[in-house]
């Protein structure tokens, strides 16, 4: 995957990703229309399919609302790269199949507007604008399996059919 980077700072919370005033719907496209609104009100209008969010530490802290990764995914964001993720957001992203990568070096060394390419399976992140390459932390096999099956629901279906 390849896209332009949109850069965010520390502790981007799920209220900033999708404010609660929009939680009276579960429609992914409606949620996507307001994605990141309280961090950058213009974001939803700027973002194009394939673009990448790059953030510093503790991305997705706060509420457990799965609407946050759903909104990001439905907006066409191909991957979120962060210095670190809050645990519920991390779990939700894996469960719904939103690609995420944890790499402090990449998070520090990618700027707004840089072209970035990501090889998810290898955890390889390249900043095409600067030529720098970063390696993300690998996923445990178990999480890899959930992701490979397309998310937790597909994984559970597979497990139930196998038993």
């Amino acid at each position: 995957m390849r896209g332009r980077a949109f850069k965010f700072g520390n502790d981007i919370d799920t209220d900033a990703i999708i404010p609660a005033r929009y939680l009276n719907t579960t429609d992914p496209l409606e949620l996507a229309a307001h994605v990141m609104e309280d961090a950058d009100p213009l974001f939803a209008g700027k973002v194009r399919k394939g673009d990448i969010i790059v953030a510093l530490k503790n991305f997705g802290c706060g509420s457990s609302r799965e609407h946050a990764p759903i909104a990001i995914k439905a907006a066409g964001i191909s991957c979120v790269i962060a210095h670190s993720f809050a645990r519920i957001f991390y779990r939700n992203a894996i469960n719904i199949g939103l690609p995420i990568l944890e790499s402090p070096e990449a998070a520090e060394n990618i700027s707004e507007g840089d072209e970035v390419s990501v090889d998810l399976a290898a955890g390889r992140i390249e900043n095409l604008t600067t030529g720098r390459v970063f390696q993300a932390a690998p996923f445990p096999d178990f999480m890899r399996e959930i992701m490979d099956r397309g998310g937790l629901i597909e994984y559970v279906r597979w497990r139930l059919s196998a038993s």
Binding site: S64, E66, N92, N95, G151
Partner: peptide, 12 residues
């Protein structure tokens, strides 16, 4: 705390 998909899987 978990997300909705975790809740769904745990309900099953």
């Amino acid at each position: 705390g978990v997300g909705s998909t975790d809740m769904a899987a745990a309900m099953a």
